[in-house]
Design a protein around this nucleic acid. Structure first.
Lengths: 342, 342
DNA sequence: CTGAAAGCGCTAACAT
DNA sequence: ATGTTAGCGCTTTCAG
């Protein structure tokens, strides 16, 4: 951690010019027909003294910051923090850094963050867009700023994105529940949201319900900081409709559902949740889930974004990754309480 | 998101020099005795055209990047992601950005990250130091790099830090368990770690055990990716020693404990865990915890670090925040299985 | 093949 | 009070 050494120091100590050093460092030795001997000598010296270019100066000059902006809905949601973790790792391997923020599904905050990143001249964005961000994203696109959305997308915008096959995920889960003949009344809990992932999950649910000629029970819930209202509403929804089973559109909705079950001492209906959570594996019974392959999603995101930055994307990358239904105890509950104990 | 406007554009359009604009923008109008009228005019114009200085150029010039490096053990642990969330928020309010990384308690990785941040010229560091980082941190200090540690500290290093009162937290929890006369055999589960937080928790446990003249049962566990070994060891520890109660030194150790209970169908001993987790509130019975005030910790961290950056810390800030014991169902379990059902 | 030199956009010492 | 100007460290054009 000694005093910073400059490219000019190297040039002086080696008795050559900074240009030559710069060319060699940037892999243009061949192109500029610099002798192999010199190239090797410079490279070795650089390694010996541990020279690292000043990224700031480099960025100022090249206009590339080597920083990627990651804006997720909520970094404390394990799904997002997991994706973030992988993204971070892959980005680093490619010489990029991540500046991340959560925006708590707040359009205004998201706009500010994007502006902030723009001021910082990040090289590209990975965003889970909240509602009302269409214009901001549109102007980003118009300015040719590399951008990839994930988890959801904006149908009216021609952007790259990586999302889950939400329709199939919801369909499979609902079908799984309906396949059990004891489940007649299967409900769906979602959010007041027009985002694509929520719409697709709802459609998947409806498709399965229709195939089985059952009635749909759909409850949308408003989540705020004092979440008790959601818990109460879920209690009402589950008990008033005497639901046999419920599909929850997110992990935190399912957690609120479990809170309702606990608070009101309800019999747990058969249930499946979207997105895994430590809690679900340990809950008794363990909770069945529709999972996303976070590593895969992160990989696709970064690769798409880096290709975009390098101008290597021939076409729009609109990637849909498959969902996986993990059946656990909560979706195969014996419906007769008397036998449940054994 | 139109074309970027420069400070020189402003100067030209207003018919004044860049210096004047720069002074005004940097709040030196008074100091430089620039007329109030002009100051106001410039400020208004700047707001009107939405000028934002190029941070890169500013950084290159001032040597300040306005970026803080946050290196935590594991961003997917809710404790750390919560602290990160607050830190991020407060930092932004103060005009700083956060670049964060998790280092998975890997000394080598942490060293690389610090080097990386150093190359990026971050203005300061907030670090949860893993073992073996002493030298790296020492050289950071020698170079007068602003630095605050948290969650744990390095006793041999004179650094600022913000940590929990781990001793008291463990003592209170253990005492709470021992206060119940049915708890004779109270165990402690920790990690193979010489980090201060683990040592202090152990000492708190020992102190309480000694006060009650009970035997200590201490199990250290090695955590790796395939965590099954930990689960098995915990099963062995709990059942072979016929423990009445267990204090877990971290939330994930407690989760492994719960996995052991589930996998081996053990009777759950009375238990308390360090650091809260969604799971703990919903588990049946809910799990008692020693909690940290993450908002408070984040606040102290940022303020200490910013003061250090501004050279305003008169002395070493070694802050110990109080712990809080939250008693829930898991530490008041009726010990007689026959009655447990009701 | 290599070097001189012009910036990237901003700050601040120095001049007026 | 305000303007001129020299850099911060790097890349890259242009001239040898």
């Amino acid at each position: 951690m000694k005093k910073r050494i400059l490219i000019s120091d190297i040039a002086r100590n080696l008795g050559i010019s900074v240009t030559t050093v710069s060319f060699i460092l940037n892999g243009k030795a061949k192109e500029k027909r610099i002798s192999e001997g010199l190239t090797k000598r410079v490279l070795e010296y650089v390694k010996k003294v541990g020279y690292k270019p000043n990224q700031l100066a480099q960025s100022l000059r090249t206009g590339q910051s080597k920083i990627l902006g990651l804006i997720v809905e909520d970094i404390s949601n394990p799904f997002f923090s997991n994706v973030a973790k992988y993204i971070e790792r892959i980005a680093y391997d490619n010489g990029y850094h991540i500046i991340y923020c959560s925006m708590d599904n707040d359009g205004t905050k998201a706009k500010e963050l994007i502006q902030l990143f723009y001021d910082r001249q990040v090289d590209g964005y990975i965003i889970t867009p909240p509602e009302g961000l269409e214009d901001t994203l549109a102007s980003l696109i118009k300015n040719n700023v590399p951008l990839v959305l994930f988890d959801r997308y904006i149908p009216t915008l021609e952007t790259h994105y990586v999302v889950l096959d939400n329709f199939k995920g919801a369909f499979d889960a609902t079908k799984h529940l309906l396949d059990n003949p004891v489940n007649k009344r299967v409900g769906f809990v979602s959010l007041y949201s027009n985002q694509t992932q929520m719409k697709d999950r709802l459609e998947g649910y409806m498709k399965a319900i229709d195939e089985f000629h059952q009635q749909a029970f759909i409850k949308k819930v408003k989540i705020d900081e004092e979440e008790d209202s959601a818990v109460e509403q879920l209690h009402e929804f589950i008990s008033a409709n005497r639901l046999d089973a419920v599909l929850f559109a997110t992990n935190y909705l399912a957690i609120d559902g479990l809170k309702a079950v606990k608070a009101y001492n309800l019999a747990l209906p058969n249930m499946v949740a979207f997105d895994d959570h430590t809690l679900f594996k340990l809950y008794e019974p363990s909770i069945s889930v529709v999972t996303q392959d976070t590593a895969e999603i992160a990989k696709e995101l970064i690769h798409t974004l880096l290709n975009e930055i390098k101008g290597k994307n021939k076409q729009l990358q609109q990637i849909v990754v498959p969902s996986e239904l993990q059946v656990r105890g909560s979706s195969i509950i014996n419906p007769y309480p008397a036998e449940q104990i054994s």
